[in-house]
Nucleic acid binder design. Structure first.
Lengths: 230, 230
DNA sequence: ACCTGAACACCGTTCAAGT
DNA sequence: ACCTGAACACCGTTCAAGT
């Protein structure tokens, strides 16, 4: 410590804007849209570790407790973020007609969006669609595409769920470290696995997560495509 | 408050065994195996919400800080639990010969084990195999089965990763609430999706998560099986 | 080396008080 | 209705002191 002034140090620059005084402001300063975009921005800058209710409040220049007038919990904020991100998933190709290519476009973009947001996956995976309007809109577009492609009605939801499950798991795989399959000192006792890892590494142009995703997705397309009547 | 004694109330019964006094005990009271099985038991009783380092220490009758002589973090405990659980995944059928049936047995048991432990999925999905010996042993058994079934070496790891990604996503799906696909007030604006959900519900014998898992797994088996040379 | 006990630096959330 | 500020009931983790 050298030459500290008597004023407490402000780690966020020369002067955080002074907060308003207590009491209801003339116009509300917060709403769900503002909270959602501030959350998305904060997550982008600080990651999910840095995403706390206190940090979110700071970027919005309010007290943490003010957030609870607009959301009921931190999980609620994550739901808003999740639904917003879903609008970036590409479902446009389902209108065009080629079912296989539509699923490809959808699945790759879906994985790419959420591979940067894996902490949301436990939230999405069990969230009632009624709580996420944009997510519901995505399902409508995808279901319509499956229906037009000739899928029997009772197989449409299971097929979508199956592909989605594959996408969620694959989104985690994107974030795996490069050495995830390094057997280390155990290599000698795992000859088949070690050999397979070795042979994959020798190919080694594309990212392993992309190779696995393409392989699984094309297998699902082939297997599920057989269900179509059209 | 009625008739409180001067002694502080003990919420855990008449008398928690008195702790030992400070200083190194004659024999160590903790080890990784004991921590792992206590953790598994605690998770079974209190769920992952109730699984805290303090609660874990209490079941082991030690101070929370004592745990850090044997593990470096809470995540470390989760890794130990994850690896232990993996030994309950059934890989025995890979020795028998029928590749399709072996993958079925493996995948269903893998999903069933971790559907009760979804908070471990973010841990498993990115954990280097070198840090989890039982998990590595599972990969060895599975790789050997794929190899014997005639898979080209460089496709074995991607195929396993793809199936595993599907399993992880499907494990979450098992925990989804029954009303997850209820469109609520939006039903009118999502006709294709709502109709598909309706038709699935009319079938309605098997659990939706099981229907989706079977459909996806069989599609993967069909699609991936085509890669075999044998 | 391996315990205890106290302390640290956080969390998310609640709630009275203010306008 | 919608803010502030203080408080609550926790967290995981560190570390000096003890044997």
């Amino acid at each position: 410590m050298t030459a500290a002034t008597s004023a407490p140090a402000d780690p966020h620059g020369p002067a955080a804007r002074p907060r308003r005084r207590a009491g209801r402001p003339a116009a509300a300063v917060l709403d769900q849209n503002g909270i959602t975009s501030a959350a998305l921005q904060l997550i982008g800058k600080s990651g999910y570790d840095g995403f706390t209710m206190a940090a979110l409040a700071r970027t919005l220049n309010v007290a943490p407790s003010a957030l609870y007038n607009h959301v009921s919990s931190k999980r609620d904020v994550l739901v808003l973020v999740q639904d917003h991100l879903t609008s970036f998933v590409d479902v446009t190709a389902f209108e065009a007609g080629d079912w296989e290519q539509a699923v490809r476009d959808w699945a790759w973009s879906y994985r790419d969006v959420f591979s940067k947001h894996t902490p949301l996956i436990p939230v999405i995976a069990v969230l009632p669609v009624a709580d996420a309007p944009k997510t519901l809109a995505m399902y409508e577009a995808v279901s319509a595409g499956f229906s037009r492609a000739g899928f029997p009605q009772e197989r449409i939801v299971p097929a979508i769920v199956a592909i989605e499950s594959f996408i969620f798991g694959s989104a985690y795989d994107v974030t795996a470290p490069a050495d995830i399959f390094d057997s280390g000192t155990m290599a000698a006792s795992t000859p088949h696995f070690t050999a397979a890892v070795q042979r994959l590494a020798e190919e080694g142009h594309e990212k392993p997560a992309d190779v696995a995703f393409r392989l699984g997705l094309e297998a699902l397309l082939a297997g599920l495509g057989a269900l179509r009547a059209a």
